[in-house]
């Protein structure tokens, strides 16, 4: 009797895990496996005809200058958004970490961009950057007498989506930096001050190292954000243009699937993207983790 009870209990963890597992299986593993399978075919629109092509889709992709260019663009995009985004967020988080009257109100203000949808964010920036009626050009004109063609020039369009993405994700980064900052005990700062450390030294040698677990986490999250979630902003602001300058991999993939109707090559792109994100994350865990200091 006792034994039977024990046995039936051993099923309980699996039973409790099963909802999560079913959801993962249906919505994560199954589609992923399916895209690997799809990437080995060429398929006509409406799925009327399907030809097995093996790894030909992958070969074509890596021989396609437009795809290689897109990979390069995406890499630059990720590096810039993460560097600029994290530096700005950290500075703002330090400022917001003070004990001022109404500071909670300011914190909320900074978090708002993260809470609005990418479509709204994109549209806002399109208005702001409008060459004729936009506020940004109006101010630039007043201050320096220059007018920038934000979204019709390759360089500025690329800059524009970086600015918009940084702005959009800043709220998320600030919240985590704030939490990290508040977790650093005052005693550490106090003893540093007693030892005669200046503000910059404290920031450089105490705050930054002690924040490294947060930074480490944020880098991974930001890679994922800028690879996958920048889609909405690109779609609204530039649609990959002008001349492919903002055609980052996730947007190219979308166009291949939903405008060119080529599920095979789109699936191959998503598999490559998945592999790249996994590789970067593993590398980051392996080498980045050495610089993380836990208290």
């Amino acid at each position: 009797m006792q034994k039977l009870n024990y046995r039936s209990h051993s099923l309980v963890p699996y039973l409790l895990l099963s909802p999560t597992f079913i959801v993962l299986l249906l919505f994560l593993y199954w589609p992923s496996i399916n895209s690997v399978f799809l990437s080995l075919f060429k398929q006509a629109p409406f799925g009327r005809k399907r030809i097995f092509v093996g790894i030909q889709n992958y070969i074509n992709l890596f021989q396609d200058p437009a795809y290689l260019n897109s990979l390069l663009r995406s890499t630059l995009f990720i590096i810039f958004t993460i560097t600029i985004g994290l530096v700005f967020s950290l500075l703002l988080a330090v400022i917001l970490n003070q004990n001022l009257k109404g500071i909670k109100f300011y914190r909320v203000i900074f978090f708002i961009p993260y809470a609005i949808s990418p479509t709204v964010a994109g549209s806002l920036w399109v208005f702001l950057l409008n060459p004729v009626a936009g506020q940004v050009n109006y101010l630039l004109d007043l201050a320096f007498n220059i007018q920038v063609n934000w979204l019709t020039n390759s360089f500025f369009a690329f800059l524009a989506i970086i600015i918009a993405t940084v702005w959009k994700n800043m709220g998320f980064n600030i919240i985590f930096f704030l939490a990290g900052l508040q977790a650093i005990p005052d005693s550490v700062y106090e003893s540093a001050k007693i030892d005669g450390a200046g503000a910059i030294t404290i920031f450089k040698d105490i705050t930054i190292p002690l924040l490294s677990p947060t930074t480490f986490y944020l880098i991974i999250m930001n890679i994922i954000f800028s690879v996958f979630e920048s889609f909405g902003i690109v779609d609204i602001m530039t649609q990959g243009g002008p001349a492919d300058s903002t055609n980052i991999v996730i947007y190219k993939l979308y166009r291949e699937m939903f405008i060119n109707f080529r599920p095979g090559i789109a699936a191959a792109q998503s598999v490559i993207l998945l592999a790249l994100v996994i590789i970067v994350t593993i590398f980051h865990f392996k080498y980045g983790a050495n610089n993380v200091h836990y208290q």
Binding site: N153, S154, G241, P242, A243, D244, R255, I259, N260
Partner: peptide, 22 residues
């Protein structure tokens, strides 16, 4: 053209490349 939506995109990209002076 079976892939007309794609053709339109290709044309638009080429016009952009021309206007940018590349």
């Amino acid at each position: 053209i079976g892939t007309f939506p794609e053709v339109r995109q290709i044309v638009e990209e080429s016009v952009e490349k021309t206007l940018e002076g590349n």
